[in-house]
Design a protein around this nucleic acid. Structure first.
Lengths: 126, 126
DNA sequence: TCCTCTATTGGAATTGATCCAGTAGTATGT
DNA sequence: ACATACTACTGGATCAATTCCAATAGAGGA
């Protein structure tokens, strides 16, 4: 049985790009391309680097929502880069994400309990 | 600041309907409407009951993938109900989901570490 | 008869994500 | 001078998933 193309093999946890960006930006302001490389290093995206275009779109969307603000940075050589920084709203959003992710973890634990309840499967669940 | 419509308020953990259905069906075969009420009781979907149409579509999709099989049940009074039961492939899928959900939990923990790293926020993280 | 609850289905519209192509500046090698 | 590669961003088209909405239909009660 091959579940490579089934969601049970783990491709449904997208939409967490936003908190990853918020967390990365909370360290220091940065531009899209750098953020792309930065989040690629996170084990979170291991093997599944987010689409570059999608990352830029996410940043633009976040700016529309007031979570970040941007300005052109022409100081470095090379093409102009748009520098993104967290707004206070973005910081608040990050704090909300902490609560939400904790809820997610509980919900996942709940599902795991359901799924493993009547299937001991030779290992004692701690 | 109002994040009701922001993904940070927790509406992105959909796509976990499938493991919820697999877990519920592993208890006993059931039909769509009953499954709907059953998963509504799970704290997992608290306040956000999955769309009925979407649940039926998910079941149909799962049958196409061979995870469940169905038959009409005319024994009870009222409209005919389509009874779904897990196939062995569906059981295997559930086992795969266990691994995937454990990975999800680790990834969420990783994100939480990132988000809370430099923001102690008056509470010591255990 | 009319309403409500059970039970399922299908189409339309919306949203989100990905794919792909294009533009542009700089640096390096030949 | 020219080709190439890397940095950096953008926009359109497409594809998949989700939700919204309307319809059908049996059974039971007021």
């Amino acid at each position: 049985m091959d579940f490579e193309h089934c969601s049970c093999s783990g491709k449904s946890l997208n939409r967490l790009l936003q908190p990853a960006l918020l967390a990365t930006l909370s360290e220091k302001p940065s531009h899209g391309y750098a953020l792309l490389q930065r989040v690629c290093e996170l084990e979170f995206f291991a093997g599944a680097p987010p689409d570059a275009s999608g990352l830029y779109k996410a940043l633009k969307e976040m700016e529309l929502e007031g979570l970040v603000f941007s300005s052109w940075d022409l100081s470095a050589s090379g093409p102009a880069r748009r520098l993104y920084a967290l707004s206070s709203s973005g910081e608040a959003c990050g704090r909300q994400w902490v609560k939400t992710l904790e809820t997610y973890r509980e919900q996942i634990d709940g599902l795991l309990d359901l799924l493993t309840k009547d299937k001991p499967k030779a290992s004692t669940r701690s």
